[in-house]
C-alpha cells in the first residue's frame, strides 16, 4: 500500500506510439515521451497541431497501444489494452475528448447520461457509492456549477461552456484521480474560457485531482497549470514551472509559441508565423527535430539529436544551446554568446 500511496498520480516513461498506414511510411506520432504528474497537480501539454498531443492522451487512457514504454497510474503499470473494458481501478483515470459536442448524446437527457456514467463506474466496485443515483447526478452538476434542473434538458439546450461543464461532470462520475482533457477551452469565448479554467483549478484543489490539460493556448494555460510540457513533432522539448515560462522560455520553439499569440489590441498586426516547412512526422529532420525552423540552429543541431537535460530548478530542455545544470537563459542570449565565443 505505502509504495502505491506515495507514487505520483501518473508516470509516463519513454512512451512511443506508431500509426501504421497503408502504402505510406508509418508515423511515429509519439516518439519517446516521459512525463510525471503529481497527485493534485495540473500539467499543461502544448504544441503544434499534429505534434502528437491527442495521441499521447489516448495512449495514457488506453485508447491507443504504445509500441514501447510504460504508463504507471498510481503505482500500477497500466494494462496495455485497447478497446477491451479496463479494470475498475483504471476508471479513476478519465479523459474528456477534443470535441465534447459530439461526445454527448443529443437524444438523451443530461441526467440520464450522467446516471449511466455513474452506474458504469459503480458496477463491480465500491458497491453503489453513497446516496441515490438522482442525488449523485445533482451533486455532480453542482460540482461543475450547473443547476439541478440541467438534468432534465438535452445537450443542444446548453451553451458551449455549459456543454463543456457537462463533459467534465461525466468524467467526474467515476470519482477519478486523474483527468486528461483534450482542448477543453478552445471552442469557448474568452469569458466562458475563464470560467472553465477557474472551475478546473477549483476542482483540482477540492478533489485533489490531477489534470493533464492539452491546449494550444499558452496564455491561458500558464494561468492555470503548475507545469507546462511543450511538445514538438512527437517529443517533449521543454518542461517548465508555469511561473517561469513567460519570463524565460528556454527552448526556441517555446519562444516562438509565445511570440505567435495574437493580441486583442486592435492594431491589426499579424502574429509572427514560424518560418520553414511544417515537418512530416513520418520523416522527421535529422539531429534536432526543430533545426529547419530554428533561428539559432548551428552545425551540431543538424547532426546530433539533443536529449532533455535538467537546467535551473526543476526544469528540463532539449536544446544544444543549454548546458546541463546551468541557469536557464533565453535562447537568443545563449546564441549570441556562442557566436562571440
Amino acid at each position: 500500500m505505502s509504495a502505491v500511496a506515495t507514487a505520483p498520480a501518473l508516470e509516463v516513461t519513454d512512451v512511443e506510439v506508431v500509426y501504421e498506414r497503408r502504402d505510406r511510411d508509418p508515423v511515429r506520432a509519439v516518439a519517446g515521451v516521459s512525463l510525471t504528474v503529481g497527485r493534485g497537480q495540473i500539467v499543461g501539454l502544448v504544441g503544434e497541431s499534429g505534434c502528437g498531443k491527442s495521441t499521447l492522451a489516448k495512449a495514457i487512457v488506453g485508447l491507443e497501444r504504445p509500441r514501447s514504454g510504460r504508463i504507471v497510474f498510481e503505482g500500477r503499470e497500466l494494462s496495455p489494452l485497447t478497446r477491451r473494458a479496463r479494470p475498475i481501478e483504471e476508471t479513476r483515470l478519465q479523459m474528456v475528448f477534443q470535441n465534447p459536442f459530439s461526445s454527448l448524446n443529443p437524444r438523451r437527457r443530461i441526467g440520464a447520461q450522467l446516471a449511466e456514467a455513474l452506474q458504469m463506474a459503480w458496477s463491480g466496485s465500491r458497491a453503489g457509492g453513497t446516496g441515490s443515483l438522482r442525488e449523485r447526478v445533482t451533486e455532480l452538476l453542482s460540482l461543475v456549477g450547473l443547476p439541478a434542473n440541467a438534468a432534465d434538458r438535452f445537450a443542444h439546450q446548453f451553451s458551449g461552456g455549459q456543454r463543456q461543464r457537462i463533459a467534465i461532470a461525466r468524467a467526474l462520475a467515476a470519482d477519478p484521480t486523474v483527468i486528461v482533457l483534450d482542448e477543453p477551452l478552445s471552442s469557448l469565448d474568452a469569458s466562458a474560457q475563464a470560467q472553465i479554467a477557474n472551475l478546473l483549478v477549483r476542482l483540482s484543489r477540492e478533489l485533489d485531482l490531477a489534470l493533464v490539460l492539452i491546449s494550444h493556448d499558452l496564455a491561458i494555460v500558464q494561468h492555470i497549470v503548475d507545469e507546462v510540457a511543450v511538445m514538438y513533432l512527437g517529443k517533449l522539448v521543454e518542461q517548465v514551472p508555469s511561473g517561469e515560462l513567460w519570463e524565460l522560455p528556454a527552448h526556441p520553439y517555446t519562444e516562438a509559441l509565445i511570440g505567435a499569440i495574437p493580441r486583442a489590441d486592435g492594431e491589426r498586426t499579424l502574429p509572427v508565423a514560424l518560418a520553414g516547412e511544417v515537418p512530416d512526422p513520418s520523416a522527421p529532420p535529422s539531429g534536432c527535430r526543430f533545426h529547419p525552423r530554428c533561428p539559432y540552429a548551428f552545425d551540431r543541431c543538424r547532426v546530433d539529436e539533443p536529449e532533455q537535460i535538467a537546467i535551473g530548478r526543476g526544469r528540463e530542455v532539449a536544446c544544444w544551446l543549454h548546458e546541463p545544470g546551468a541557469e536557464p537563459k533565453r535562447p537568443g542570449e545563449l546564441a549570441a554568446a556562442r557566436a562571440d565565443a
Partner: peptide, 17 residues
C-alpha cells in the same frame, strides 16, 4: 476583453469572467 488572460500574470491567479 476583460476576460482575456493577462500574459505573464502568474499561475494560480483567478481569471476574470
Amino acid at each position: 476583453l476583460g476576460s482575456l488572460p493577462q500574459p505573464g500574470l502568474g499561475a494560480g491567479t483567478e481569471l476574470r469572467s
